[in-house]
């Protein structure tokens, strides 16, 4: 145990995700040895991010204004919504440059064992957005795991009666990999979601 403010800093750092007691100690001593200007810049960034970053009032992505830059961009398509679990998933989809519509961030996936049900996610907000006649397509881009699949099933079930085209991201083989190394579940999904080739 260290004394006073050093131990306070180690305790605070140790509360961060993925940082254990040893890691917290290493970061604390790195900060002690660093330039004052560097440490001040880090501290200012932490305070600034808490002050300035909010959730977009439309899609619940992180934003510095009322709306995120994607919702505020008039060049984006208004007819399609891609539904994701977390704000970091928006960045992952944006990196593909394949989707030109807008997003909706649920804030997680349905997980009854953790006590997370549909009412704990931003599903009602999504349904309100879908009430607008301009939206004709919803792409469900939850994680390809049991919780993500179940959340997609639930959403598909409640969106279907609204007559909106609903699709789920395909699962299958990673590009650049060898078929022989694919596990049977992923390969099975790839067969289920196989697509016809023209010509």
């Amino acid at each position: 145990m260290y004394e006073g403010v050093i131990q306070d800093l180690i305790d605070e750092l140790g509360r961060l995700p993925g940082v254990g007691p040893k890691g917290a100690q290493r970061i604390a001593f790195h900060l002690l040895n660093a330039d004052s200007a560097d440490v001040k810049r880090l501290a200012d960034s932490l305070i600034e991010v808490k002050d300035k970053v909010h959730f977009c009032k439309t899609c619940y992505n992180v934003a510095q204004a009322e709306q995120c830059r994607i919702c505020a961009d008039v060049r984006r398509e208004l007819t399609a919504i891609c539904v994701v679990e977390e704000p970091k998933d928006v960045i992952a989809v944006e990196r593909t440059r394949e989707f030109r519509g807008r997003y909706h961030v649920l804030g997680g996936a349905i997980n009854p064992m953790e006590g997370i049900g549909p009412d704990d996610l931003r599903i009602k907000e999504l349904m309100v957005r879908l009430g607008d006649d301009t939206i004709t397509e919803v792409i469900l881009a939850m994680d390809p795991n049991v919780e993500g699949e179940a959340t997609a099933s639930y959403l598909a079930r409640i969106i279907k009666p609204m007559g909106i085209k609903t699709s789920r991201l395909a699962s299958g083989l990673p590009v650049g990999g060898d078929l022989e190394y694919a596990d049977e579940i992923t390969l099975g999904r790839a067969f289920e979601d196989r697509r016809p080739l023209d010509g």
């Binding site: 349904m127 009430g131 607008d132």
Partner: peptide, 9 residues
């Protein structure tokens, strides 16, 4: 009740 009809937002 979970699915508001279109247009009623």
């Amino acid at each position: 009740a979970d699915t508001p009809p279109r247009g009623e937002s």
